[in-house]
Design a protein around this nucleic acid. Sequence first.
DNA 1: TCAAAAGTGTTCTTGATACACCCATGC
DNA 2: GCATGGGTGTATCAAGAACACTTTTGA
Lengths: 229, 229
Amino acid sequence: MPHTYQYPRAALTVDCVVFGFDDGELKVLLIERALEPFKGQWALPGGFVRVDETLDDAARRELVEETGLKNVFLEQLYTFGEVYRDPRERVISVAWYALVKLSDHKAKAATDAANAEWFSVSKPPRLAFDHADIVAAAHARLQGKVRYQPIGFELLPAKFTLSELQHLYEAILATKLDKRNFRKKVLGFGLLLALKETRMAGRSRPAQLFRFAADKYEKLKKHGFNFEL
Amino acid sequence: MPHTYQYPRAALTVDCVVFGFDDGELKVLLIERALEPFKGQWALPGGFVRVDETLDDAARRELVEETGLKNVFLEQLYTFGEVYRDPRERVISVAWYALVKLSDHKAKAATDAANAEWFSVSKPPRLAFDHADIVAAAHARLQGKVRYQPIGFELLPAKFTLSELQHLYEAILATKLDKRNFRKKVLGFGLLLALKETRMAGRSRPAQLFRFAADKYEKLKKHGFNFEL
DNA sequence: TCAAAAGTGTTCTTGATACACCCATGC
DNA sequence: GCATGGGTGTATCAAGAACACTTTTGA
């Protein structure tokens, strides 16, 4: 059924910048466009917002439909509204960024209908629309946020070693960190629980596994605690 | 001319949380709604986005139309998209926050067409729609941002005293600050220029006037400088 | 001379940085 | 036994926090 309005209305979409961490690198998940415009080019997963769903429902729905991802950390980023950002017509895009435990989801994305691939954030392919700007904004947000909120854990498996955590921070912030200082600080928060397991990687000494005490963090947060790396 | 679309589309608006500082208090500018729904209630200045203007053009246009304010600091806050946030139909609102030098603009707002008034942020009136949530989000953003970006100056006249600056920070952050430490730190950045003037307030010792060296800050920022209060 | 806000330094404590060697394992 | 990454402590330095009195003006 067609719908009629007195004034022309912009179309409304959501686009998601999905970050993952693998191979010591920060990655972003892109899909290959099947339709014009920008057919065959890489773009962010996303699509039109239905009139009866919230923006974050729309973002989650598109993630499932286009990448098979669900139950991910998702946060609104920014709304992009340049007049000619879409060559077809006026389209406003509410951009989101998501953090996924790539270890859990790697297989899924590859087998889904749409052609989806992980790319290094530092050398992405040419992107459709203004999606390069959106990725840049998301990356900047992640770099800022990771310093004072324990969201890095969303990118790691539930059990991880301190070295993995450090390498994650080094990849996100694009810096080198001192091992001893990093461990001292991060353990000082008392939010990492040492498990009774270790992990062997290669032919080196096995590493202690930890998990993040999310429940404990939630309690502390209410009392004005700040996770500041 | 009416416009027809295959799928129903949400309407798109912008809403602005305009902050000012006066009388030692952080204030927010509200307008009284002339039409239903929420007729007679206080609400944020804002309105529909035209199909041929960017989101920030729309926000600036609405500010001029409804409050007479122009050339203000304006930054996107968040996009609110609950399905029933407007009782008439689906309306997505891209919210912005603005900082104004109240000293310059006080008169204007009062004489404009719409009934506009400044309210204390800490005791606002009942607000239309979800505007109370928007104000709360803007306040939280301001509290966060003011710590690491020199945006406080947008709320003060071009010439100000250190005490005024301190009281501004105290009002925004809702804390007391130590006078000597505050002055030491803020002068330490080298971004405040002492003018050759003083200001007399009441029957006390005249205070040194300063202005913010915005140009100097812009240069430093490019080299990774951080204004951290 | 009093009231009111402006202005000014030092000490102490805390957190940040810099830095080098031994350990457990697989090959 | 050697290569690989895991694990550990101390000394220095910089920044933050706490704190009280003198100055200038108008009334």
